[in-house]
């Protein structure tokens, strides 16, 4: 009957978590440290318009997301709510790894800041994009829309919708290929994600993976101290080397929320706190109850859920 912490992937399109920042000194202290580590002003991390090029913007946005996630975690821990199992998607997996003790906070944020220097792709490279595909939930291993088509890649599996009828997949690829696919499928079964110009978790991110490889190789990784599940395959990450491998492969390999949730469930999670705006409330079916935490009032909901569902809390470690 464990309490899981589940961190969303990607970067949100809307600001959230500001009230948490205002209400909790422990978050403000964290943001001040993140500012020193990354060179971004606290206001940039918190709410300012994100900067310039796609890679700069992506880097700043990942810092914003991770700072918020770690901050919310710190607020919860301050109230005795510690994770029994950690999991996350993509960036959320890195945040979870950090909270499991596999990578230091400073190292994580410096790595995210370093990503802003990713070289631009040559202008002749095709424009990239993202889309969500909706397939029948009972389709089994029927593949994904556009499978085998040049320029279209399966980049994520978010699993079934709340009513169990559909399965949501993420496709990455060349914008023209995704647009063409949308035109051929029944209306509403492929939804392009606006303003997403990076084909995450696909072979089109090879250059980014290559750019980050030496940086990741230089980071010291430790064995996780809290059970940590992977988003790249259905398994737990038990060694520093496995966590490093996740960081290295994350840019190009597809992610699976289904695997994350199954791994958490196998490790006894019966309530998960969803942290980060990129797992919308009410849209997906989880194999355990979830409480989204991004406002101060959600903490009371967490307490109520912990009590109602009979969750075992992790005691504080002896200092």
């Amino acid at each position: 009957m464990a309490l899981g912490f589940l961190f969303g992937g990607g970067v949100g399109t809307e600001l959230y978590g500001l009230e948490m920042y205002e209400a909790h000194p422990v978050m403000r202290e964290l943001y001040a440290r993140v500012s020193r580590w990354t060179g971004l002003a606290v206001e940039q991390i918190l709410r300012d318009e994100l900067p310039g090029t796609p890679e700069e913007r992506q880097s700043a946005a990942t810092i914003r997301e991770s700072a918020l996630a770690l901050g919310v975690h710190d607020v919860l821990v301050e109230r005795g709510l510690r994770p029994g199992v950690l999991g996350g998607l993509s960036l959320g997996a890195m945040t979870a790894s950090c909270l499991a003790g596999a990578i230091g906070r400073r190292e994580l944020f410096e790595m995210l800041a370093y990503a802003r220097h990713t070289p631009r792709l040559p202008p002749e490279e095709p424009e990239q994009g993202l889309a969500l595909a909706f397939a029948p939930a009972d389709g089994g291993n029927a593949g994904f829309p556009g499978e085998g088509r040049p320029g279209v890649h399966l980049s994520g599996d978010f699993g079934p919708t709340a009513d169990g009828e559909l399965r949501i997949l993420m496709l990455s690829g060349e914008r023209t290929a995704l647009d063409a696919l949308e035109g051929e499928l029944p209306p509403g079964s492929l939804v392009p994600l606006p303003d997403r110009t990076i084909a995450v978790h696909s072979p089109l991110r090879r250059h980014f993976r290559a750019f980050m490889a030496s940086r990741i190789a230089a980071i010291p990784f430790s064995d996780p101290r809290v059970p940590l599940v992977s988003c790249l395959e259905r398994k737990a990450l038990t060694t520093g080397a496995e966590v490093r491998d996740l960081f290295a492969r994350n840019p190009t390999d597809p992610i699976s929320l289904v695997d994350v949730c199954a791994g958490m469930k196998e490790r006894g999670v019966r309530l998960a706190l969803v942290i980060g705006g990129s797992i919308p409330n009410g849209l997906l079916r989880f194999p355990f109850p979830v409480v989204h935490v991004d406002k101060p009032e959600h903490i009371q909901q967490v307490f109520a859920s912990v009590y109602d569902l009979g969750i075992d809390l992790v005691p504080a470690r002896a200092s």
């Binding site: 992937g9 990607g10 949100g12 399109t13 809307e14 993509s90 993202l130 969500l132 909706f134 994520g156 978010f158 709340a162 949501i168 993420m170 939804v191 994600l193 606006p194 997403r196 995450v200 705006g277 990129s278 797992i279 919308p280 409330n281 009410g282 849209l283 109850p289 409480v291 989204h292 406002k295 959600h298 909901q301 109520a304 859920s305």
Partner: peptide, 17 residues
């Protein structure tokens, strides 16, 4: 069905990533 405490709703899948 599947009643749970209310949280802010988002029906837009675009927020998924």
């Amino acid at each position: 069905a599947n009643v749970a405490p209310l949280q802010l709703m988002s029906s837009a899948p675009e927020g998924l990533y």
